[in-house]
Simulated assay, not measured.
Amino acid sequence: MASTSASRDRYTLYGAPGSGATPVHAALTLIGAQVDAVDVATWEGESERARMSGVNPMRQVPALVLPSGEVMTESAAILIWLGDRYPEAGLCPAPGDPKRARYLRWMVYLSAAIYSLYWVRDDPDRLVPDPAAQPAMLERSAERIAHCWHLMDTQIDEPAPYLLGEKLGMLDLYVTVMSRWTPQRRRFYRVAPRMAPVVRCVDADPRLADFWAARFPFTTDPGAP
């Protein structure tokens, strides 16, 4: 249940449905804070990126305007900050918790090793101006993403039933959303079989049913091939 302080807090979140703003919005939903969503799909072209220039100089989403008026960017940083800001929601290990190091490790791993690759995948011209070379880049980056998922799956503790124990948390939200991106769930289930039950569990969480339906519908689960 949301705390009284959380229910009074109001945030403005920039980022289109299915984007890196989605795990942030899901977290705010579980926290019980008020969210004004501003849909901006920066991967759709220059005009969309220009809309973000006054909010985030990187012209990327997500960007979160805090109740104080300060702007936060970088999805992992936002999720970590929200988890610490609302400890009563139980979405992350507290400082001093033995699981805190693992939590921080994997949150930053997801951002650095996997999420960062979508900057070039979303607009291959950024680093690969030759159209003839872009299919190879897209194929190799998809291979790299799948490899990184596999490495995480082999190193993370056995889910019980979530990635850090018995409660759904920020790490689960982050993995669940990103596992829907390229190379998509069918391959994710194959390369990360230990994490597969976790993302299915988060998909089906009744507290997020309305949120998923409105902001990131996911009606087809192909299962493992």
Results as ranks from 00 to 15, higher is better:
residue 177 V to L: 13
residue 168 L to R: 09
residue 194 R to T: 01
residue 184 Q to W: 15
residue 164 L to E: 05
residue 165 G to P: 03
residue 179 S to A: 13
residue 183 P to W: 08
residue 149 W to I: 04
residue 187 R to K: 12
residue 142 A to L: 06
residue 144 R to L: 13
residue 158 E to C: 05
residue 147 H to Q: 15
residue 154 T to L: 08
residue 187 R to W: 01
residue 163 L to T: 04
residue 140 R to V: 11
residue 150 H to Q: 13
residue 191 V to T: 08
residue 163 L to E: 11
residue 132 A to S: 11
residue 191 V to F: 13
residue 161 P to K: 08
residue 177 V to F: 00
residue 158 E to P: 07
residue 145 I to G: 01
residue 172 D to P: 09
residue 168 L to H: 02
residue 162 Y to G: 10
residue 178 M to L: 14
residue 132 A to T: 09
residue 173 L to D: 02
residue 185 R to A: 07
residue 192 A to E: 12
residue 196 A to K: 02
residue 141 S to N: 06
residue 180 R to H: 14
residue 192 A to K: 00
residue 155 Q to C: 08
residue 175 V to D: 03
residue 182 T to H: 14
residue 143 E to C: 03
residue 143 E to G: 14
residue 158 E to W: 06
residue 150 H to I: 00
residue 191 V to E: 07
residue 152 M to Q: 07
residue 181 W to T: 02
residue 145 I to C: 02
residue 158 E to R: 10
residue 137 M to K: 05
residue 165 G to L: 04
residue 135 P to C: 00
residue 179 S to Q: 03
residue 194 R to W: 00
residue 141 S to A: 13
residue 158 E to Q: 15
residue 145 I to Q: 00
residue 177 V to D: 04
residue 133 A to R: 09
residue 171 L to S: 01
residue 162 Y to V: 07
residue 161 P to I: 10
residue 179 S to N: 08
residue 196 A to I: 06
residue 176 T to I: 15
residue 191 V to S: 05
residue 136 A to H: 08
residue 158 E to D: 10
residue 164 L to F: 05
residue 179 S to G: 06
residue 176 T to L: 07
residue 157 D to C: 05
residue 194 R to E: 01
residue 157 D to H: 12
residue 179 S to P: 04
residue 149 W to V: 01
residue 162 Y to F: 14
residue 142 A to E: 14
residue 177 V to S: 08
residue 141 S to H: 04
residue 182 T to W: 11
residue 147 H to V: 09
residue 172 D to Y: 06
residue 153 D to Y: 10
residue 173 L to G: 02
residue 167 K to N: 15
residue 150 H to S: 13
residue 154 T to V: 12
residue 171 L to Y: 01
residue 194 R to L: 00
residue 191 V to Q: 03
residue 178 M to P: 09
residue 165 G to W: 11
residue 177 V to R: 06
residue 156 I to G: 00
residue 172 D to V: 05
residue 161 P to H: 08
residue 156 I to C: 09
residue 163 L to N: 02
residue 165 G to Y: 11
residue 144 R to W: 06
residue 173 L to N: 04
residue 144 R to M: 15
residue 167 K to R: 15
residue 188 F to W: 08
residue 174 Y to C: 02
residue 188 F to M: 07
residue 152 M to D: 02
residue 177 V to M: 13
residue 175 V to T: 05
residue 190 R to M: 13
residue 142 A to C: 14
residue 176 T to W: 12
residue 194 R to N: 10
residue 163 L to Q: 04
residue 152 M to V: 10
residue 172 D to E: 07
residue 168 L to T: 05
residue 155 Q to T: 12
residue 162 Y to T: 12
residue 152 M to I: 01
residue 181 W to S: 00
residue 160 A to N: 14
residue 193 P to E: 04
residue 195 M to G: 01
residue 149 W to C: 07
residue 180 R to C: 12
residue 196 A to N: 06
residue 172 D to G: 09
residue 168 L to M: 13
residue 159 P to E: 11
residue 193 P to T: 09
residue 167 K to W: 12
residue 181 W to M: 04
residue 194 R to C: 02
residue 160 A to L: 12
residue 143 E to V: 02
residue 180 R to S: 11
residue 132 A to P: 03
residue 154 T to I: 05
residue 184 Q to L: 13
residue 136 A to D: 15
residue 190 R to L: 11
residue 146 A to L: 01
residue 149 W to K: 01
residue 134 Q to I: 10
residue 192 A to H: 01
residue 164 L to Y: 09
residue 145 I to A: 00
